[in-house]
Design a protein around this nucleic acid. Structure first.
Lengths: 283, 283
DNA sequence: CCGAAATGTGAGCGAGCGTTCGTTTTTTTT
DNA sequence: AAAAAAAACGAACGCTCGCTCACATTTCGG
């Protein structure tokens, strides 16, 4: 009812590495990835994550057969995320977890030795997912801060979309982490902000952006990215797709830092329709 | 070490209702309030809040003498906010609370009949503080959406600064509210967003702002306001004052929606120094 | 300075928590 | 099909929780 449906490539084929053309200029490169294309590149399905989880904790998990272990882990983790995000991790009892996941109390303890270990296992997957995806931006973006900024926003939204319950979990339970975990969370949080700040500083130096304070601007972009997963249900209710949100945030940020297109850089779509006044959508 | 100290009126006398002039034009009005001026207008000290709290719960609080009740309430609430914001409300035991606040278990129960009641009492003060301050914007802003938007951002930041632990508490414990409270929180959250959206829509209609989607823009401004109290310690570490933050957010938002000064409206300071490129502050 | 009203106290209650472990069930190997 | 290995089970344990209540202490008008 409210959908404006302005995002462009959505529903189209996932934009891969570089199928030349479709537009006009030869140096066109498909910048605007879709969530689908992200999913094609990274596997953050429950199964894939639990498989990695098992490998990382072979010594503590007492179940031998991998396929059995992964299957059970999936049930445990799935249920944990659901219950914890509803009532909080501390309020979720292991009896609840056992009942809902269909395992017994004893069976649970084949996969972790402490409730806190379960928490840390989940947190671990979140933080390694962050460094796997955001840690190594494509090299060809090194000299293009505007593109790199977009890539950061896009990747962050898509990652947190793929692992939404995980990120909500990490975000909400962060203060209860056993110190070691809390520091890990803070560090990862700051490193994202640092990446944004670097792109901003770079663009500022090249005269592409304009802002008063780089660090401050970076720390205002961060909550925009977090809002996507923290308030996911609100956006779902309003029918906002990940692509739609990426576009909205990108436009908002680019306008705020007065982002100008790079002179001889990759061209990005949307440049023609960019400055129209737009129509109000009351209420 | 990092402070840039660009905010103007700070340290100066609190800007009251309307001491004409200081600039040049006669219709100058001091728009940029300080946190101090906010505090002069509203009393959100612990004592004041606990006094209101007592009045609102005279029937459930069994202590007769008001000054005794307020004193004890202050100890209880103060301790609750501290402990709950450190470990979470559910992880805070009433024994902890009793010890830290210097009361006995039994004494606590003179002030509430259930742990959940304590939670709801705190939430109640937060939500009534919101409606008291944000609920009635000064009438003279009715026809000036840009000024109204600023007033909203400013007031929100100052309110949450004055009651920071309260807001963190409400934000973090929201999902554990006994339903009634959860709905209240959601409703108040949405009403703030609605106020922002109204100002945006108004400005758009008058041709002062430019944005693609009003509702979406409003929902991106909200997290910027929440960040102030949720990540308060980060900003404290960096030496950012409330005034500084208000300014940064305002500039960021106004640039994003391409806010233009209203033709024949109140003039606002800062317009001269506004569009300079600024210098990077690396790392 | 008394005595009644108001406050404060903290051991004790049952419930529910995280965790363990002797046992049963299932699976695999022989 | 029997024996061995692996996995699942869930009652039981010690502990902490929210909450109560019979009693001790303080307050204060007369």
């Amino acid at each position: 009812m409210k959908r404006t449906r302005t995002h462009q490539a959505a529903d189209g084929p996932p934009v891969g590495p570089a199928p030349v053309d479709e537009g006009a200029t030869p140096e066109w490169r498909p910048q605007w990835r879709t969530f689908k294309s992200f999913q094609a590149e990274f596997d953050f399905s429950l199964k894939a994550i639990c498989t990695r989880m098992l490998e990382r904790h072979r010594d503590t998990i007492r179940t031998q057969k991998p396929h059995v272990a992964v299957a059970k882990l999936m049930r445990i983790i799935q249920t944990t995320l659901t219950l914890a995000n509803r009532k909080g991790f501390h309020s979720m009892s292991l009896r609840d977890l056992a009942t809902e996941s269909g395992l017994s109390m004893g069976a649970l303890y084949t996969y972790f030795d402490t409730k806190d270990t379960l928490l840390m296992m989940i947190l671990g997957e979140v933080s390694s997912a962050v460094s796997e995806t955001l840690g190594s931006p494509p090299g060809h973006l090194a000299d293009h801060p505007a593109e790199r900024l977009r890539w950061l926003l896009e990747t962050h939204v898509y990652l947190t979309e793929a692992m939404q319950p995980w990120f909500v979990f990490a975000y909400m339970e962060a203060k209860a982490f056993p110190k070691e975990g809390r520091e890990k969370a803070t560090k990862s949080e700051l490193s994202t902000e640092k990446m944004i700040a670097d792109a901003l500083a770079d663009g500022l130096k090249r005269g592409l952006f304009s802002m008063r304070d780089v660090e401050m601007t970076a720390s205002m972009i961060k909550p925009l990215l977090q809002d996507w997963y923290v308030k996911r249900s609100k956006y779902r209710r309003r029918g906002i797709s990940p692509e739609h949100y990426v576009q909205a945030v990108t436009e908002f940020v680019e306008a705020a830092i007065r982002c100008r297109p790079e002179p001889n850089a990759v061209k990005h779509r949307r440049s023609s329709q960019r400055r129209e006044p737009a129509v109000a959508e009351p209420s």
